[in-house]
Design a protein around this nucleic acid. Structure first.
Length: 626
RNA sequence: GCCAGCGUAGCUCAGUGGUAGAGCAGCUGAUUCGUAAUCAGCAGGUCAAGGGUUCAACCCCCUUCGCUGGCUCCA
């Protein structure tokens, strides 16, 4: 047989081999990219191909391992539970899952059994073999195997030829590629069982999903499991209780937040910060009522497009909607007098408390509540001002996120199915958002069909201290509501023109943002946000007066401080303050009293002797400049 | 809303059909102490709620409420 030339990772070599695996025999290589396409190592070479190896520690490599691990899990499940019908089982960002249609759900004991079986399959090092066949043959194959879900998938596919992968006793409809054999899986764990709708549609049957993850070594798996533990420690519901920030109550009802005193002061600090910020940036503070007549919601389109999220009440026979958004009052403020082109842009800001009917299953502490307060603003401007206004909102987002130490990404959401307004308006609004991001040189993704019902939006996804993403800020461009409510301004030529409207939030909601902050800082807030900034602790009763005097002088300078003059050991007081994550512990005893100084200990354990004035200015200077 | 699991003292959790337990927190007393827990005593519960089975239910069954993890949805 003649030698053929192939390029492997940029190096040309000649070979007699006809499959890739015979050229590269490296246990770290799990698949290959042949002329740009991911393929199995069993894929053939005819000469002239450009081949890149895909190693187990690359992103593609790990995804392939996880996907293969999903097949191994399916094989184990089929062996242990013959009544479980396989459906789909992809790799995800953190691992993989496989959905089964099974009469009785999996228990946690079942997971242990499945894991054991999977370990056997991996130990047996079963080979993944790929087979191509016509769609018709594949349909017959899965019909004979009594696998109706695979048949349904096949019927919806356009391809005439499909691929099947077999390892051990299990064959799956799959595009691939896969690892050469099950032994390539070095570390895996099954994590949880959950219900999931067939094809993600709530009208379909609910399947049983098993989540798992796999890594290329035991250490990475352990790091991941540790990360999950760390996330649990930071859980804002747990910290909110421990730090006495907020509570929920069965008696009050699900999804409703009660702020405890420490959470109350925290919220008020955030809200004061926002009011100052917005006033400085040319916003005006307004307030609208919590309920508005049904007619307003008819006119805005909420009745047709948002009704299932709203609560209603009745007053003397008239229907009122409890507001899920703040925009309608702001529209009326705009309409309260004739506006000139010279007045624009007009920016109204409100810490507006809204109420939405969130389904019971989605409620989640502060992150998903039924009543919450948005840092909401509506900007009314001329079309020629639109890009400039969007740009300055983006700048404001950048400024605020830097203060809290969040990085973020942006995405544009386009017209959803349920929506109001003309196609031209949607196109123009979407273009304004895109143009602004492009003008500012910012990268963004497109999230098709995920806009608000009245307009497209830019969503900001922030990344917290341990890398999780959250959606907070959003900027929505709206030509529809100004149209529906007949908004106008008098242009320079005396004609009446329609203003554009921007809906925007920066933190998003106080509740969600606070929840994210709690997890981001793991409860140890920066000193400007800390509910208690300093506790002054006396060593013995002889220093109680001095401690009280120090605390008073701090309180006098607007510092949230108090004295701990209980008859307890200093170690006990420090321990308590540390657990409460108080940024500064001020210890005073005989030495400090006679020198008129304080001993300051921070949460990092650093100690320093200073004058009380020094600590006062240190704390007061920690408030961000805006 | 759907699937599964769970609900015992303020908190964290033991308690598998036979009189409700621990630690921490709380209260009282003693201890006056130098950088993450001093000691002793006391008090604290319609075992989520309602119904059923049983001589007997925190425990078994049913219903409702709530919570947790997912799914769908979302700031």
């Amino acid at each position: 047989m003649a030698d053929k030339k192939v390029t492997i990772d940029g190096r040309v070599l000649s070979t007699k081999a006809s499959i890739i695996k015979d050229i590269i025999d490296d246990p770290l290589v799990v698949a290959a990219r042949k002329d740009g396409t991911l393929v199995d190592l069993s894929s053939t070479v005819n000469g002239g191909e450009d081949i890149e190896t895909v190693k187990i520690d690359s992103e593609d490599g790990l995804t392939i391992v996880r996907h293969s691990c999903a097949h191994v899990m399916a094989e184990a499940v089929r062996a242990l539970f013959p009544d479980a019908r396989p459906t789909i089982g992809p790799a995800t960002k953190d691992g993989f899952y496989y959905d089964f249609d099974k009469n009785s759900p999996f228990s946690s004991e079942d997971l242990a059994l499945i894991e054991k079986k999977m370990a056997e399959i991996i130990a047996a090092d079963e080979v993944f073999s790929r087979q191509e066949m016509s769609k018709a043959d594949a349909i017959k194959f899965f019909k004979d195997a009594d696998e109706p879900y695979k048949v349904e998938l096949l019927n919806d596919m356009n391809e005439t030829v499909v691929s099947l992968y077999k390892q051990g006793s299990f064959t799956d409809l799959c595009r691939g590629p896969h690892i050469p054999s099950t032994g390539y899986i070095k570390a895996f764990k099954l994590l949880s069982v959950a219900g999931a709708y067939w094809r993600g549609d709530e009208h379909n049957k609910m399947l049983q999903r098993i989540y798992g993850t796999a890594f290329n070594n035991k250490k990475d798996l352990k790091d991941y499991l540790d990360f999950i533990e760390e996330s649990k420690k930071r859980d804002h519901r747990r910290l909110g209780k421990e730090l006495e920030l907020f509570m929920t109550s069965d008696e009050i009802g699900p999804g409703l937040i009660v702020y405890l005193p420490k959470g109350g002061i925290l919220r008020s600090i955030l809200e004061d910060f926002e009011k100052r910020l917005h006033i400085k940036r040319g916003y005006e503070l307004v307030y609208g009522p919590g309920i508005l007549r049904g007619g307003m919601w008819e006119k805005s389109g909420h009745m047709d497009n948002y009704r299932e999220n709203m609560f209603f009440t009745e007053i003397e026979g008239g229907l009122y909607g409890i507001k899920p958004m703040n925009c309608l009052s702001h529209i009326l403020v705009y309409k309260s007098k004739i506006r000139s082109y010279r007045d624009l842009p007009i920016r109204y800001f409100e810490l507006g408390t809204v109420t939405r009917h969130e389904k019971s299953g989605v409620l989640h502490g502060l992150l998903r509540a039924r009543q919450f307060t948005q840092d909401d603003a509506h900007i009314f401007c001329r079309p020629d001002q639109l890009v400039g206004e969007i740009a300055s909102i983006i700048d404001l987002v950048a400024e605020v996120m830097a203060i809290f130490g969040f990085e973020y990404e942006m995405e544009i959401s386009t017209r959803p199915e349920k929506s109001i307004g003309s196609d031209e308006d949607w196109e123009e609004a979407t273009k304004a958002l895109k143009d602004t991001l492009e003008l500012k040189g910012l990268a963004y993704n497109i999230n098709a069909g995920d806009g608000a019902f009245y307009g497209p939006k830019i969503d900001v996804k922030i990344k917290d201290a341990i890398g999780r993403q959250w959606q907070c800020a959003t900027i929505q461009c709206d030509f529809s509501l100004p149209e529906r409510f007949g908004l106008s301004y008098i242009a320079s030529d005396g004609s009446r023109q329609r203003p554009a409207m921007l809906h925007r939030v920066i933190l998003g909601t106080i509740e969600r943002f606070l929840g994210i902050l709690i997890e981001h800082y793991a409860g140890a807030f920066p000193v400007w946000l800390a509910p208690v900034q300093a506790i002054v602790m006396s060593i013995t009763g002889a220093h109680a007066d001095y401690a009280a005097q120090i605390a008073d002088s701090m309180k006098d300078k607007d510092i949230r401080a108090h004295a701990d003059i209980r008859n307890e050991k200093i170690g006990y007081k420090i321990r308590e303050a540390r657990l409460a994550k108080v940024p500064y512990m001020v210890i005073v005893g005989e030495r400090e009293k006679s020198d008129n100084t304080i001993a300051v200990r921070d949460l990092g354990g650093e100690q320093q002797i200073m004058k009380v004035e020094d600590l006062i200015s240190k704390i007061n200077n920690a408030t961000p400049n805006i």
